[in-house]
């Protein structure tokens, strides 16, 4: 019998990334830091990550609550993002928001696009 705990693939956000989302939301005058996470076609490797601070979910969005905020993901993007951890890399050499995506086989040099 397999004793491993079954964890459904989800999308999560690190404490540091959530802190920065809240800062950006506050600067935009948003009371609730809700974040749309998605992908779109393009970028050197095929798919590019999309982040947007929004007021609420779309009709068919998956809603994930994490770090005191809500993440909204459309169903097609979710296929490419399941298991992803959104982190933030700060400092002078930091890259900003960073996606640790287990579905990404390759990424482009700047890290903003990936292929599956």
């Amino acid at each position: 019998m397999n004793n491993h705990e079954f964890k459904p693939l989800t999308i999560s956000i690190s404490e540091n990334a959530a802190k920065h989302v809240k800062e950006f939301a506050s600067r935009d005058g948003k009371e609730t830091p809700n974040l749309r996470v998605g992908v779109k076609g393009g970028g050197c490797s095929g798919l590019t990550y999309v982040l947007d601070i929004v007021d609420g979910p779309g009709e068919n969005d998956k809603v994930i609550k994490d770090q005191g905020m809500e993440l909204y993901i459309d169903k097609k993007s979710y296929v490419f993002l399941a298991g992803t951890i959104l982190d933030y890399s700060g400092g002078l050499n930091g890259k900003g928001f960073v996606f640790d995506n287990p579905n990404a086989k390759t990424s482009c040099g700047c890290g903003t696009s990936f292929s599956v």
Binding site: G41, G42, G43, C44, S45, T48, C108, G109, T112
Partner: peptide, 8 residues
């Protein structure tokens, strides 16, 4: 700017 294959 970027498009699929641009980097190569």
């Amino acid at each position: 700017g970027c498009y699929i294959g641009q980097e190569v």
